[in-house]
Every structure is written in C-alpha cells, then in structure tokens.
Amino acid sequence: MSAISVSGLRMHYGGVEAVRGVDLTIEEGEVFALLGPNGAGKTTIVEILEGYRKRTAGDVDVLGFDPERNERAFKERIGIVLQESSVERELTVAETIETYGRYYPERLETGELIDIVGLGEKADARVKTLSGGQKRRLEVALGIVGNPDLVFLDEPTTGFDPAARRQAWGMIRNLRQLGKTILLTTHYMDEAQNLADRLAVIDRGKIVAEGTPDTIGGRRSAGTTIRFDARGLPVDAIPLNHVAVAEGIVEVSTEDPTRDLHVLTAWAVAGGHTLEDLTVTRPSLEDVYLELTDEGTEG
C-alpha cells in the first residue's frame, strides 16, 4: 500500500497557482525527495499533505486519511519537521521532548530519542543554549517522538555547515532504518542524491521529472558525452558526429555510449591513433536539475 498518493493536486493563492496539477505516489518505507528551487511549490505541497493547507483541487490520500480533515488519528501517525519553527527557549531538551511525547498514544522513550538525535550531552540544557544544528536535531526528535509511520522533513539541513549536514544525513538514514516513510524537501542536489530512494523535481508548481537519483531525467541513457584530445588526429576521419569544444578537444554526444565508444576505439586502434584524455561522462544530477528547472539559463 502507498503511504502517500496524490493526483491532480492544485493550489491557488489568490490569482497565483502555486501547485499546478501534481501526481505523486510514495510507497511505504521509502525515502522520497521533492527537489526544486525556492518558490517552486515544495513547501505548499508538503503542507497540504501535513494538513496545514486546504487544497484547491485534486485527490490526496496520506496513510488512508484526507489530511485536510485534520483528524487526530492522522496526526498520531505522522511526524512533522517544519522548515521554520522553533520550540520554547526556556525548557530543557528533555522537558521539550517529554512535553510533545505526551500528545501521542505511542511514543519513543525520551532518553532513547535524545540518543538517536545525538543530543545526549544536552539533555538538561535549556533550548536557548543550543546551536542552530542542535535545535534542528531537537526538532527532528519532536517530529518522531510519536513513533510515526510517516515523517515530513521540510528542508532539514538548510543553513547547516557541511559537518552538521553529514550528521543530519546519518540521522535521516537512521530514521529510514527504523522503517519510516520519509518525505523530504530540499534544494540541495547532493542531499537528494545521498538520501532519497526516489525523487521528483518540481518547478513552478509542476513535477518536471521523477525517478531514482540514477535514472531521473533520463540520466541513465541520455546525453552521455565522450570527450578526448584530438590534436594530431585526422579530425575529419573520426567516424562519429563530433564538435570541437576547445582547442583540440572534441566531444561526441551519444545516446548509445557502448556502441559509439566501440566504434570510436576500433577506429583509433585500427589507425594506430591514441585518444588522449578520453572521458565518458553522464550528466550529473546537478546538470539534469539545472536543465529541468531552467535555473542554468536564467540570470
């Protein structure tokens, strides 16, 4: 059974369409990333799924509930880590977790949870004394204190330094090991690549690509580039369509790299040529992302 299934989701704010027809299915136990630039509609979609917003149109099913109805049984099974929110400054870490834990029929034990998020040494520290990364980890703890089946993480590492991000990623992998379905939004490609089983790229309120980090945007097959130094070679005799991209450097774009590479190397070996600096590259997730969202071509 799917944890989340969405079809034809639309959201208008006044005259602006923030979400323009989104279909999405997320399976149980999956880590799914919504990747997109700021303002693409990621948070709007997530907040509809969390029950914060009423959609304009479309069907939404989250764990068998319609989130719009804000049922208590629904809230008992989800955990939310908001993009921007905070907790009371004057309470300690343990008190805060204890407070929120009380709301759920089933909950993780406070001490256990403090260890999971790595705040063991800060258990009795007031929240106001925590660093930004520690606060974020406390927020994640509050998101899972009710032992939810589904966790929403809205930009969990925005503003983190690289070390804190790595730690957060480790924590998210831990959540996955606990068997939880995770929907995370991010505008970091490496984050999606590192954490997600599947991801969807959102741009201007629409999903423009969906797949695994390896296959998204046709990464696996399309747009492979063969590149080598052609100086000293009979360029006109190269048996493939090619373009010169820099002084002496030649690139071949191919959709069938196995075959074209064979053609190329067979030609080189037969003619006694050496293909200096030969590389075969697929577009990185970043290339795919920039192409899909047009970010690379704007300002």
């Binding site: 208590r72 008992e76 009380r102 709301y103 759920y104 029929p105 089933e106 909950r107 993780l108 034990e109 256990e112 260890d115 999971i116 790595g118 032992n147 730690q167 480790g170 924590m171 831990n174 090991q177 606990l178 068997g179």
Partner: peptide, 28 residues
C-alpha cells in the same frame, strides 16, 4: 556516528517489544 548506528539497530530489533509507556492508549 558509529555509536548512533548501534543505537538505531538495537532499536530496530527491539521495535516490537520496545517500551511504550502509553502503548496505543490515547491520553485522556
């Protein structure tokens, strides 16, 4: 991180028997 991972795996195995103070009972 290693310590964390160990914690987690013990929680995974204990999931079925994990201490649940208010197990499946909604607070009044």
């Amino acid at each position: 991180m290693r310590a964390l991972r160990d914690e987690t795996s013990s929680i995974v195995t204990d999931r079925a028997t994990m201490t649940r103070p208010n197990s499946l009972r909604r607070p009044s």
